[in-house]
Design a binder for these strands. Structure first.
Lengths: 341, 341
DNA sequence: TTGTAAGCGTTATCAA
DNA sequence: TTGATAACGCTTACAA
């Protein structure tokens, strides 16, 4: 593993018979260096196998060329969530194009999350951060504003935020799901909701309630969960145990919907004959369970790309370009059907 | 967002009436600075809200204080894989304790992956890297050796590697699964394997074959897949269509096993009555499908921690401490039972 | 125990 | 169009 000391810009300058400044200019192809000199410099660089040191560059221009993503999740709940891998893939695509890197931190609780943001931004390791899993009245906003680090909230713009928000609004997707069930003839439509502390947890619930109200239907039963399969199964049992159980359930994610499917199956409740089931996320498995799961699909990769683009714009002080993210769309499969009469 | 310029070490030094060197020594609490002076310095730092610039530190000590993880996966296959979120959570725990950061890159293909490694290491953005999804005769090993960057292979030590390998061997888990089926009385045990190009794909297959051989049973049918639910479903159809279909199938991951469960269900094949099904990974959903899935569980978080520890040791030139990772264990649930006679 | 000064490898300023 | 030279903010010999 013989650490050969890498060539520096001075070595290249010497080899090309020019000054360091000239090398820097040639590399970042900026005007002020003759074409043939530039060529000679680049050749020397290639020859020596020189790559500029990002550390030196970072210090010199006071930039980290990296942005941060802090996930405050327990490993168990993180691994069941297909959102982040896709989101990160989208983020990376955009960052790579600008030679930016993604610094990822996974922390156990909110206290550590705050410490993480503080260390990252304050120590100058990142030029900006993403804020995901936005809470209702999220304390991180004030924290980041105080630190003075550019940030982008990953979620729908709900108006009046201190930081720009980039993301897909859940509401149309949930609304489409509920409307689909209404169109099929359902009148008792339940919701298995995510944690009310999260903005997306509550917004999905709201969309469900509003769509029912708009159709003049009574608000069906709603059970709050923690997004886990376990809690989805429990919620399903609770609903099926009601004196008047729902004929359809809209779940806040696919994992819970699949667990619900299994509960129904175990109890001999036919899906969709006796119970229609809708998920959210359209995970890969959704199309491959029995019956295939109707779900709401979002282009999370594009979302990640848009969020990263906005963050880089913010860091660079550039104007915001309008992200064009398509609305979530309902993917209808066999888990939904007309209610039995 | 008023970027207030942060205080520097000189500001602190001035405020405390000492030299920059003294501040540095006090901060990294090293001997050679009187207790009361140290106290005064730290107080001044606190007062000014000073945090050392990691950029300057990185340049000064020629270290990035970060390690890299490059994932060459398509977003679709990445999001279905619960391994990485858990692994990263484990890695992070260890890194955070040493004030190291994780640089994550997600790239689309192998070419870009190589470029990524090169840029990361050569530009000095990271002090070491993880190599995951090891291929049979993986070209990255030579690449990283040439670059001269410390690396840790994430996977079982298969002997004679250039870089240390840290990870859990799949074999005992698969062997336990096959043995479990043999004990139940199965004699036609199939395998739905992962891609043969991957080391873990082939090693799971080998374990299956060897366990059958050891029991004096014929090698059942084996179908190679790409780890996706889609391919798992297709493989299951292929197996069930055989003139003499297997009575049990060991899948290389849970997602495929669950898709297999659905195929069986759709065809009216009773599980476990007519077909026993075993997954690998023990995802959260495994316990909540119908019937609950027998699967092989690994402590991936601990694995991530061990890999990170080894990488930091390598970076620091410290001796390797022996990681104690527990072997994968078979979690028996209702998807496996005695074969019909 | 403390202060001084020389790096680390870039970019940026300013004469030439 | 070029080439010195000074930052950038820290660590670390080396002197005092």
């Amino acid at each position: 593993m013989l650490q050969v000391s890498r060539p520096t810009i001075s070595d290249v300058a010497r080899a090309a018979g020019v000054s360091k400044g000239a090398v820097s200019f040639a590399l970042n192809n900026r005007p002020g260096v003759a074409a043939d000199t530039r060529e000679r410099i680049l050749a020397a660089a290639r020859e020596l196998g020189w790559t500029p040191s990002s550390r030196a560059r970072a210090l010199s221009v006071s930039r980290a060329f990296a942005v941060g993503l802090v996930l405050a999740r327990k490993p168990e709940t993180l691994r069941a969530d297909p959102f982040f891998p896709s989101f990160i893939a989208g983020v990376e695509q955009e960052l790579a194009a600008h030679d930016y890197a993604l610094l990822l931190q996974v922390v156990a609780d909110q206290q550590r999350e705050h410490d993480s943001y503080r260390r990252l931004a304050h120590g100058g390791r990142v030029d900006g951060v993403f804020v995901t899993d936005l809470l209702v009245d999220d304390p991180r906003i004030a924290l980041l504003a105080e630190i003075g680090v550019p940030a982008v909230v990953v979620g729908p713009a709900l108006g009046g935020g201190f930081f720009p928000a980039v993301g897909v609004d859940d509401k149309p997707g949930v609304a489409a799901a509920v409307q689909h069930l209404i169109d099929l003839g359902h009148t008792r439509i339940a919701h298995v909701a995510g944690p009310a502390a999260y903005v997306h947890g509550t917004s999905r619930k709201q969309a469900w309630a509003e769509t029912l109200a708009a159709a003049g239907l009574p608000e069906g039963p709603c059970v709050e969960t923690d997004f886990s399969a376990e809690s989805g199964a429990a919620a399903t049992r609770t609903l099926l145990d009601l004196a008047e159980p729902p004929t359809a359930v809209v779940y806040a994610n696919d994992v819970m919907a699949m667990a619900g499917l299994a509960v129904a199956h175990a109890r001999g409740v036919d899906v969709p004959g006796e119970l229609s089931v809708v998920g959210y996320e359209d995970t890969e498995l959704a199309a491959h369970v029995q019956p295939p799961l109707t779900s709401v699909a979002t282009d999370v990769v594009a979302w990640g790309g848009a969020a990263a683009r906005r963050l880089l714009e913010l860091v660079d002080g550039r104007e915001a370009t309008e992200p064009d993210l398509e609305s979530p769309r309902l993917v209808v499969r066999a888990s939904t059907g007309a209610p039995a009469r």
